[in-house]
Design a protein around this nucleic acid. Structure first.
Lengths: 240, 240
DNA sequence: GGAATAGTGTCTGTTAGACACTATCTA
DNA sequence: TAGATAGTGTCTAACAGACACTATTCC
């Protein structure tokens, strides 16, 4: 009676298509941007969209997402995590398409963009100046991704993935402020970082208009993944 | 060259199957349980599995998950959220199957189970006494769900979804302890709840062996969703 | 009264948040 | 020296965590 995995005949049912879409975040001139591609063909020709594509039968979802990312930007070995799966019927006018969305954080200054055959253009947009009329439900996906990035920033070291290997505290602080949309207290922010033991002094200084800033790097053990760091409300818990 | 949504011919590629699997949590005698079904047919005949099934072409993912939940337990209108999408090739020996996993929290005392045609049996298992050799990658999905439930418990009111409408503070505390696997201080826990203004005194008392406990209910506005409540580290932030 | 459970009062160390201060560079 | 930016010292209110206490029931 009920259709379940138990009595399924692989050829019996119509199947949806499955894509991965990747929201790619990067900093440009200290502002948070996302990478978008402009579509060439129906549906939503000329509209901007999040890069993505179909999942091959022999690759995992994450492999598919990394492949798309590399095709679009040439980057690999970056931080990436699964965001959410969007599957409302009708979100794609062609056929039922279920999209597994990922988001990636990249160090933009190290990257050059490449326009693929399938798009007119590739472009970075500041997250608060997105183009109008995005393709499909990509506006929703993007909002979802930005919300997630903000909330993860509050208790992880994710933001570090956006920075160059060596950076100053003022720069890190500006990034937190940019993403959170909120001013932070310098003294408290620095103290928090010092106490967290996440950073390592490189000894180098970076000249600017005023006093030069010390350059730091992340301690090796904590560079990857999302080691707990709360920019407020330090947490002691040892578990997890 | 690249395959993207832009030049896709809906009939051109082989498509994966898409299922939803639902991890159903409930309390039984104060312990956290998950609902599992015992499979009848190949593959993994006789093995225990998370209830799930194929997504119909005209229903959303969440609708599919709710349908599966209702078929398996008869419940509806419960808390449910998308967990993660598992899609490694080879996770199902029949064909490529991508599974969108959900988790649901139900008030078990209100429910009677019904065994579907496709399973030998349906059963609640305590989360720390799961059967061996679960079907597919369901062990992984289950661990994922338990971790997520634990971590969400620390900053949301999710646990309340497991409780009856009216309950005592000692009972709520025991549930937190059961799920977190950690003893909490009574005075601090009660104080936290009082200050949070989440609860409403029903005026009723519940008799037990010692002094009777006051019964509370959640304030209407906060019953649904996951209003912020940290069982430790109260947070003031007004945003979100 | 004693056992069992429910519920409260209060001290202490930690720390987030505020803000005034000092330091080091360039022009 | 002034302007600009980097970085520090320190006070205070809030609160998590600890723990001893009181309250109300049943036997």
């Amino acid at each position: 009676m009920t259709e379940t995995a138990e009595n399924y005949d692989a050829t019996k049912y119509e199947r949806p298509s499955v894509t991965v879409d990747v929201v790619i975040f990067g900093l440009r001139s200290g502002r948070l941007h996302v990478l978008m591609v402009q579509r060439k063909h129906w549906p939503y020709a000329e509209h901007w969209a999040i890069p993505g594509g179909f999942v091959n039968m022999d690759e995992s979802l994450e492999m598919a997402a990394r492949r798309e990312l590399e095709e679009e930007t040439g980057v690999h070995d970056v931080y990436m995590e699964q965001l959410y799966t969007f599957g409302d019927p009708g979100r794609d006018p062609r056929t039922r398409v279920i999209s597994v969305a990922y988001f990636a954080l990249i160090r933009t200054e190290e990257q050059a963009l490449q326009v693929s055959d399938e798009s007119n253009d590739v472009c970075w947009f500041p997250v608060d100046e997105l183009p109008k009329d995005l393709a499909f439900d990509h506006e929703k996906i993007l909002r979802f991704a930005i919300d997630r990035l903000r909330s993860k920033l509050e208790y992880t070291t994710l933001a570090f993935q956006l920075l160059p290997k060596e950076f100053s505290l003022p720069k890190l602080k500006r990034i937190y402020e940019e993403i959170l949309g909120e001013q932070l207290d310098k003294a408290n922010f620095y103290r928090k970082l010092r106490d967290s033991d996440l950073l390592e002094d490189t000894g180098k200084l970076l000249n600017s208009r005023g006093r030069p800033a010390r350059l730091y790097r992340f301690r090796d053990s904590r560079i990857e993944g999302d080691f707990v760091f709360r920019y407020r409300e330090a947490k002691k818990k040892d578990e997890q």
